[in-house]
């Protein structure tokens, strides 16, 4: 909230919850798809997330990460992609053969590159 609105109104302009697809940044999606094409196969069943070791106690949702990367909405998953413990349970369970562990690792890598302007 800007100082003007705080002092003058006691409220401000709310941040939109909208995913504006036309403004999304799909460079991370491209980076992962180029290196791990199985990324495209996810149909959001959630089996990866159901058995996720890290997800049991922290916000790590591989299914949702996949969706957000595809839409080009990166801010909400910035932290999440670094929390994978690489156990491989998701890989074992995925019915579509998505190489989920690698997807997570590539997502974390791509985010770092994004910050360094290397994408």
């Amino acid at each position: 909230m800007s100082q003007v609105s705080q002092q003058k109104f006691g409220f401000g302009i709310n941040k939109s919850r909208l995913i504006n697809y036309d403004k999304g940044d799909r460079r991370v999606r491209q980076y992962i798809t180029d290196r791990e094409p199985t990324f495209k196969l996810c149909f959001s069943c959630g089996a990866c997330t159901a058995g996720c070791t890290a997800g049991a106690h922290a916000t790590v949702n591989m299914r949702r990460v996949n969706v957000y990367i595809r839409r080009g909405e990166l801010e909400p998953i910035r932290e999440e992609v670094t929390r994978c413990m690489m156990c491989g349970k998701c890989l074992l369970t995925c019915p579509r053969g998505v190489n989920t562990r690698t997807v997570m690792a590539l997502a974390a890598e791509a985010m770092k590159k994004l910050d360094r302007n290397e994408l």
Partner: peptide, 12 residues
């Protein structure tokens, strides 16, 4: 709604 993200979505 992008129901899998739980957020409204707009596109052209």
């Amino acid at each position: 709604e992008d129901t899998l993200a739980g957020r409204p979505l707009r596109m052209e």
